[in-house]
Structure formats: structure tokens, C-alpha cells
Design a protein around this nucleic acid. Structure first.
Lengths: 351, 351
DNA sequence: TTGTAAGCGTTATCAG
DNA sequence: CTGATAACGCTTACAA
């Protein structure tokens, strides 16, 4: 593995000239430039990021911190992150917190300490908790004066001064509800996401808003709070069925719970969509797999990852923005067989 | 962010002493040790990996190269990798090749160049291609004399001198077949994985072996080659059905294809498992989701990742082993509803 | 046991 | 336009 010295020796120039040729920071005569590039080729030389990092304070590394690698949407986000990262010349290091905020803090500290250039964070920190709120605040000021390390939050708005890439959860919920309402349903159950998370609250708001606009009274008996998992959807559905409330449709706050709910309905001999229509949120690949296929509202997972890197890259080159950016991505209704016989039945092959 | 100098100043010692205390390389008096640790605590100091890397040639980084992040088994492997990596003090950087060997080479080169300490590689290189074979050979000698960078291959034995973590594909296929045979099936179709991959060949061998041991003649009309995807399983099943060969069971070389095959059977009004039993290989979470749930042979994905790091860590500390290691992990039959009414019907919640 | 100083590979300053 | 050299943060040989 050749170093800059080897290149300089072979090209018959100084290491400074090699550096200037490769980084185009100072003009170099055409003659020497050719020699240097030739030597670079001959020796198959590439800059050593460790040496460069020490001097220039840039490592071209991005740290990605997420609650869990096993969430069904993570691979798509990571693909977006990776593709954009390669484009902008970054390497991606990944950290799994298991939803533990202490781990989150530890990894943030480690990334700062490693002089990585930026952080993409899907945080589980709770703003209502004092110490966690302080931690969130600290995120807007990571690094030293010499090297600020920007943070981009995924899926969440963490605070007034932290950039974020999100989808409009409330609007997405309204889209799902709008679909059911347009099909003539007016007795609609809701299986909610945990209300302690912002996401859960926003999706619930969307449910309520849609009802209100349609002139339907909100009834808390029609709601059950799940925990994102398929089993919680299954259990919620059973609880709701036992209440013997009339209903013709179910809106679940994510696809996993919707699939659980579908299973509970089918177990009872209830036909989907003839007796009851079901719709989820997120649009993960298992929704194309189940029978009937599940209608949902697509979240642009790949784009979220991609945009997060773009935003980060911008912040890295221009650390002091006028104000923080929140990139809001569009969601889209996907009609499948669980709400309509005309719905799409194709498989998502990306798994 | 404090540096080693700040710690030294605050503790009233030299930076060498700080280094010695933290790395325990040389004895330091108890008195100074206490002072140093206090200063470390006060300043919340952590070693800067960039500076350390430059001097010591170790970066505590592992590069992980895989064909695709979206494969359904990747998250579990990555979880194993991450958990072990944290335990051993490594950071994990990920690279997606999209099955393109040129990308693979590029990332290997980049990792070498970045002085990472090791590589975990799930390669798509084909040993039968000359240039790719040369590339594979080169993998056993990455880095310089000063810093060798070990490679651990995932799922594949790449060559006689490269460590690997694998499962016994042939045996796993025999396990699946053994299950069908024990249920009394003797007309068994096979939907195979691509025969250009080692994995595909081994699973096919397992199929043939099991037939032979049961005294059943191999019939190539009972076989169709898929490409791992659910749709290819679906299409293969349709082709096989058109051949009008009598059969009572299907063994697919992975769960995705098995699920595709199930869908084709159910579309034709064929009952599973009453008319036809179906079994896959790999045991991914969608298999617990479909109806009926799919029998399979479990591959220990988390452990594969975990063991790969353990092996790598061992090679990093002891670069010149007597011989290379191949860690072979156990697989296990999982009986679900697609082969037996007594089969398991529980969901795998880890998604 | 402790401290001084060289050096890892690169970039950037500054003199030529 | 080019080259010598200091500096980045740390580890380690060697001197004290």
C-alpha cells in the first residue's frame, strides 16, 4: 500500500505537490501534474483517510444511530443512506440502540469523539423527561468550535434547532381515513401507535380530524392502543370485537398492527374486505404478501435516508445555517385488496 | 472535547503517563493513576481514534460488505455483528454491492486503504470466472506486512485460506427433505436456488441425497430452478403444475420461493398441507406470517454475524494462524402448518 | 516509575 | 509554481 511519500519519490516531486495535485487546492504546472497522476496510477495510490483526518479534521464518516436494525423499514432507509453517502464520498457506520436512550447517548459521544463528520439519528428520547430533554438540546451543539458535528433527525422533529427529515404523519393518517370514508365507511375503528411517541399522537390526531371533517363523532370505545407489533394489533382487534360495537372498517397506525388485526378478523370468519375493510400505514413489503393484500399509505423510506445524507452533507459544508431545515416527504395511498376488490395485488420483490 | 494534553495538564503528569494509564501498557504508580483517572473523568475524555490509528495502525473499525441490505436475513446478521462488535470494541461500517463484484472490489480496496482492522464479506464473486477468482485469492493477503487485514467470509467458503462462517447447506436441505419423507411423501418437487451459486448446488445435492437414501429415483422433471425471489417460486410452481406430474410435496431452496409456490398452489385451489405439503429453507419471519405458516429449516442468522466478529477479532490479534477456520453453525427443523396440522403457528415478532 | 521526543500520513503555511 | 516543514493526537522507544 503506497503512501504519499512513495508517490512523491516516484514522480520526482515533493509531497506537497502531490497533495496539491490530488486536492486541487493550489495550481500545479501541467508537466508535474501529469507526472504525479502517472505515479498515482502506477502505485495504485489512494489517500489514507486516517492521516488526512488527523490533519484536516474531516473523516468522511457518518454515524447512523437507530433503535433497531430489525424494523422492516430500516433496510430501505439504510439503502437510501448508503447510496447517497457513496455519492457524496462518505462511509456509513451503524449503531443499534435497542430503544435505550443511554446507548444513544453513548454512541453520540463515541461518534463525536471519533471525529465523524455527521450523525443521522432516529431517537427514542422522550421530550417530557428532563434529562432526556437536556440530552436532545445538547445535540444541536456537538463537537468543538473547530469541528461542529451536525445531526439530522429521522422521522422526528427533535427540537427547534435540529434538522430533520420526516413525513407528515397526521396527513398520512388522514389519507388512510379519507380512503375508507370515500368507500362509504363511517364506523371506523382505530388501532393506535403508542401515545407516548409523537408519531402515535400525530396519527391519532389524523384519525380524529378525518372523522370530524366527515361529521362523525369520535368515540373512544372505537380505539385501542397497540405497541407497533403484529401481536398487539391482533390483541387489540380481539378486544375491540368483544366490545360488540358495529363497525365496517379498521385503520391501524402501522402495517404490522393492521396485519395482526386482519388475522384476528379472519380467525373469526369475518371476510376482508366484504365485511370489514382494513388499512395500515407505512407500506412495508409483508403487506403485499398477506392474503388479502393490505392497503396502506406508503412512506418513502429510501428517500428519507437519501435526503438525510443530502441535508447532512450540506450542513457539513456550511455549518452555520440561517435556520434549521425540516424536509417533509410525501406519502401516497396504496389501494390493495383489503379495502377494494379493484386493489393492487402485486408483490413487492425487494426482500 | 478534551485531548490527551488537557488530561495530562490537569493531572499534572506527562501525556505518556496518561497513555500508559489508559492502555495499561506500562506500570504507573497508584498515586498518579488515581490522578489521571480523575482528570479523565472530569474532562469526560475519550481517546481519539484518529490519532491513535495513525500511530498504532489500529482503527477498531470493521467493514461489512454484503450484496443487499434489503435481504430479509440481513438485519438479523447485522444485529449479531453489531452486538459482538460492541463487545470487542469495534465500530461497524457497512457497504452494499448490489451483487456487483466491481463494487465489492472497490469497497475492499477502500477498507484496506482506510486501515480498518478487518472485513466481513458476503461475496458474489464467481470462482469459475478467472478475474474474479484472482480477486478472491487476493483476499487472503490484504494490507501490508505492517498491518494485515483479515477477511471472514459469510455463508461461503471462498478458498482454502480464507476464514468463513457458514451453515451446512447440504445437510439443511437433507433435514427439510427428511421431514417430508418421514411424513410419507415420496413424490417431492424441488424449486432450486441458482445453480451458479455454491449455495444452489449444495441444496440441490441435499435434495438428491435424501431421495437416494430413501430409494427414490431422481427425476429432473420434478425440478425447476428459481432465482431466490418469491415470484420465481410462483412461476416455477406454475411450470411444474403444467407438467402434470403427480406430487404430494414441494421443497423450495429458500422461504421466499416456498411462499411464491404456496401462492401458486392456493390459487389453483390446492390445499396446504392436505393436498400438498410445502417446506422452505432459511426460516425468515414472513414464513410465520403467511397462511398456512410455512415449515422451514432455521439458519442462525444472528449467530452467524456474532461468530464472524469473534473469528475476525481472533485473527486481528493473532494474524498468522496455523490454518484457516471454518465455523459451521447448526440448522434446525421448524415444523409449521404447511406440512403438519400439529405445526407451530406463532408469529415471529422481530420485524 | 516518569518524562521527553520521534514519528505515523496528510495538509497547510510560508519561504524560495 | 514548488518544496521544506510544522502540526494534527496519540503511542512508544528511550532517556532520566
Amino acid at each position: 500500500m503506497a503512501g504519499i511519500k512513495d508517490v512523491a519519490r516516484r514522480a520526482g516531486v515533493s509531497i506537497a505537490t502531490v497533495s496539491n495535485v490530488m486536492n486541487k487546492r493550489k495550481p500545479v504546472s501541467a508537466e508535474l501534474e501529469v507526472k504525479v497522476w502517472k505515479a498515482v496510477q502506477d502505485l495504485n495510490y489512494e489517500v489514507n483517510p486516517v492521516g488526512r483526518g488527523l490533519k484536516s479534521n474531516r473523516t468522511n464518516q457518518i454515524g447512523v444511530i437507530v433503535p433497531s436494525f430489525s424494523q422492516v423499514y430500516f433496510p430501505a432507509i439504510l439503502q437510501g443512506i448508503h447510496e447517497a453517502a457513496m455519492k457524496y464520498g462518505y462511509t456509513v457506520s451503524v449503531y443499534e440502540t435497542n430503544g435505550n436512550v443511554e446507548n444513544e447517548k453513548k454512541y453520540v459521544k463515541f461518534i463525536e469523539n471519533s471525529w465523524m463528520d455527521g450523525i443521522i439519528l432516529a431517537s427514542y428520547a422522550n421530550i417530557e423527561n428532563k434529562s432526556e430533554r437536556e440530552y436532545i438540546w445538547s445535540l444541536s451543539d456537538i463537537g468543538t468550535d473547530k469541528k461542529k458535528i451536525p445531526v439530522v433527525s429521522l422521522e422526528n422533529i427533535l427540537g427547534p434547532s435540529i434538522d430533520a427529515v420526516i413525513v407528515e404523519n397526521k396527513k398520512a393518517a388522514e389519507t388512510a381515513m379519507g380512503h375508507l370514508l370515500s368507500l362509504g365507511h363511517n364506523e371506523i375503528l382505530h388501532i393506535g401507535a403508542p401515545q407516548k411517541f409523537n408519531i402515535g399522537k400525530l396519527r391519532m390526531e389524523g384519525y380524529k380530524n378525518a372523522l370530524e371533517e366527515a361529521g362523525i363523532r369520535f368515540d373512544s370505545d372505537k380505539v385501542c392502543e397497540g405497541d407497533f407489533s403484529p401481536v398487539s394489533g391482533y390483541n387489540c382487534m380481539k378486544v375491540l370485537l368483544e366490545r360488540s360495537i358495529p363497525f365496517t372498517a379498521v385503520f391501524a397506525a402501522n402495517d404490522q398492527m393492521a396485519i395482526g388485526a386482519m388475522r384476528a378478523l379472519l380467525d373469526k370468519g369475518i371476510s376482508i374486505p366484504e365485511d370489514v375493510a382494513v388499512i395500515g400505514l407505512d407500506n412495508n413489503f409483508p403487506s403485499t404478501l398477506v392474503v388479502p393484500s393490505l392497503s396502506s399509505v406508503n412512506f418513502p423510506k429510501f428517500d428519507m435516508g437519501y435526503k438525510a445524507i443530502e441535508l447532512l452533507s450540506q450542513r457539513i459544508s456550511e455549518p452555520e445555517p440561517e435556520k434549521r431545515s425540516v424536509i417533509v416527504l410525501d406519502t401516497e395511498l396504496v389501494v390493495r385488496k383489503s379495502t377494494s376488490h379493484d386493489g393492487d395485488n402485486r408483490w413487492n420483490l425487494n426482500w
